[in-house]
């Protein structure tokens, strides 16, 4: 019970921080909306999409990229959360949290959950705007997407957590974000289906296939149509376990070499 009080405090602090940072809120929404309203209009003509699962008929390019843009929001949100972790470490509040009398995995897990909740909130608003634009899914699709989005958010948050454990200064973080976010996003099925990539470059298609972000996006894509993609689920869970495990190792009290 006492541990839950601590977890609630960590989550509430993160949510309050997000609500008070209006620029962060709008930036998080503007990015995917620009992709949806501007880039998708241009790409629609250039990219032909064949019928691939989970779609049963031809779809617009805008419809195709909605799950990818949900993933994009979660990816940026995960990185933003890790940025706030680096900031917490620089401001000293991280020390305060890590010296609380709870297991480190629990404290970092609460931080991870908080970041995922912030991401989910942004995705929910994005989906409402997309709905207003005519990109609608069934109620079952929205309900099924919720746990898929949550898992994707937690997995990407765990990646951010791992990165924050390795990065010592905020200045270094911007560079790493560029080396992580953009390759992950563009080497995935967020903007184009895998077979399109396969036609262009088998090597890049292979990289797409092993990219955890691809599987997070596919998990959400299938869920939005009320379907389960077991392979994507497995990959996403595996990636979460790997990233969170590495993050915990990174946040372990430093060991000295044995003497």
């Amino acid at each position: 019970m006492k541990a839950l009080i601590a977890a609630r405090a960590i989550i509430t602090r993160e949510l309050a921080r997000f609500v008070t940072q209006r620029e962060r809120f709008f930036a998080a929404l503007v990015r995917p909306l620009v992709w949806l309203f501007v880039f998708a209009a241009g790409f629609r003509a250039a990219l032909g999409l064949s019928i691939i699962p989970p779609y049963k008929t031809y779809i617009s390019y805008e419809t195709y990229i909605v799950p990818g843009l949900c993933g994009m929001i979660l990816l940026f949100s995960g990185m933003q959360s890790s940025l706030s972790l680096v900031n917490d470490r620089e401001s000293g509040t991280m020390r305060l949290m890590l010296t609380a009398p709870w297991p480190r995995w629990f404290l970092l897990g609460a931080k991870l959950l908080a970041g995922a909740m912030v991401g989910l909130l942004q995705v929910a608003i994005f989906l409402v705007i997309a709905w207003g634009y005519g990109l609608k899914f069934s109620l079952i699709g929205y309900l099924a997407a919720l746990p898929a989005l949550a898992l994707a958010g937690i997995m990407l948050g765990a990646l951010g957590l791992f990165l924050s454990a390795r990065i010592r200064q905020l200045e270094n973080f911007a560079g790493v974000m560029n080396f992580v976010i953009f390759p992950m996003f563009f080497l995935s099925t967020a903007l184009y289906p895998l077979w399109k990539m396969q036609e262009s470059s088998p090597l890049l298609a292979t990289l797409c296939e092993i990219n955890p972000f691809t599987h997070a996006v596919e998990l959400v894509r299938f869920a939005l149509y009320g379907q389960m993609n077991l392979a994507a689920l497995g990959w996403t869970v595996l990636a979460f376990a790997l990233f969170f495990g590495l993050a915990l190792l990174g946040y372990e009290p430093a060991r000295t070499r044995s003497r």
Binding site: M1, K2, A3, I5, A6, R8, A9, I10, R13, T20, S91, G92, T93, R95, L96, M97, T99, A100, P101
Partner: peptide, 30 residues
């Protein structure tokens, strides 16, 4: 253990009470 670090460890943009409340919650007090 109660700790006061050499470097500051607080949220500047929150009130004194909010900072203390956050810490109390981290210790399991509400």
């Amino acid at each position: 253990i109660g700790v006061v670090y050499q470097a500051p460890t607080y949220d500047l943009d929150r009130s004194v009470f909010a900072n203390l409340k956050y810490f109390a919650a981290l210790q399991g007090l509400s």
